[in-house]
Design a protein around this nucleic acid. Structure first.
Ligand SMILES: [Zn+2]
Ligand SMILES: [Zn+2]
Ligand SMILES: [Zn+2]
Ligand SMILES: [Zn+2]
Lengths: 168, 168
DNA sequence: CCTGAAATGTTATAAAATCACATGAGGCCC
DNA sequence: GGGCCTCATGTGATTTTATAACATTTCAGG
């Protein structure tokens, strides 16, 4: 899309991590959350979350649709959009507005308003924690009387790997 | 789009302001900036900015296209997208990712990375100032080695007017 | 004037998201 | 278990948003 896409291997926090374990952990967390809140963690929804976790990068709705179709589910856009909507609504995944894409939550369990760092070169995305009503937005909201219900904070730039590549 | 759209009259900062004067001021500022930097502030671009300033709210690309076509310019999408691209690139306008729409900059002149508060009820948008590398993002970037090139910070919620309406 | 770079206009197409409606699977009461 | 209601799924069609590709025009600089 941009230029040199060479998708390196650790998009989560731009650093190595226990990728094998984090899938099981996240799925288990989602399962528990759904059981506790009377939500239906159906096969499509589970599969969608598994794909997000396995890929470990931002996935477009239509790319997800391909994956779901290949897995034997429906083949029309709403299939993907509905599964993703469920995952986002329950905090299992996030939408990256800048990319029109979705990514599994890197900090499952905790209620949080995430902040993302998006590499414009390799498209990797890192998720940082954020406080909903802090920083510039909290101040501005307080000053004007705006009631914040949700925030989206995204930074575009170069991840450590790509920055190093660019410098050389 | 959502539900009760009653677009109140002061979307800028959720408060009254000298709307008549701010158009001329902003246009003049843009004109000066372009003259100084050797940019061509062409009729379409000027018209597009005037529309954004006059409407004083987030405008979709296709809505802008309608306005431009009615004003005698081209009638195809690239006409609007190119004008808006120019305005955004030079800081005269911003794109609200959450709305897929554009809005005139409320703080022309100053180089800044804006933060927006978007009312989910009346769609009004307020622009607050922000420092590129401060707050949660700056910390996270420093910790991971991410080089921030641009940020987008948007909050969705209720503006003071709509919050009051909802409370009653 | 000549010329090259930037801007405009148009056709066509791609990408992203939603609408509308039929069918199917579960939970619940009896 | 059978009836019933709700939510989830599947599909076709459409809308909305955005870009590609290319011909033509405009304009500053020489
Ligand atoms: Zn998260
Ligand atoms: Zn990178
Ligand atoms: Zn601004
Ligand atoms: Zn409002």
């Amino acid at each position: 899309m941009t230029s040199g896409n060479s998708a390196h291997s650790d998009p989560l926090g731009f650093e190595a991590h226990d990728h094998a374990g984090c899938i099981d952990t996240a799925i288990a967390a989602a399962e528990a959350h759904c059981a506790e809140h009377g939500l239906r963690f159906t096969p499509v929804r589970r599969s969608a979350l598994e794909f997000l976790l396995r890929e470990h990068r931002a996935i477009g709705a239509y790319e997800m649709l391909d994956l779901l179709r290949d897995a034997g589910y429906g083949s029309q856009p709403p299939v993907a959009y509905r599964a993703l909507e469920f995952l986002v609504a329950n905090g299992f995944a996030h939408k990256i507005e800048r990319l029109n894409a979705f990514i599994a939550c890197a900090h499952p369990g905790a209620t949080h308003s995430p902040a993302f760092m998006i590499c414009r070169d390799c498209q990797s995305v890192a998720e940082a924690h954020s406080s909903p009503a802090r920083g510039i937005l909290g101040d501005a909201a307080k000053a004007t009387g705006f009631q914040i219900e949700g925030t989206m904070i995204e930074a575009v730039g170069l991840c450590p790997t790509c920055a190093q590549k660019a410098a050389s």
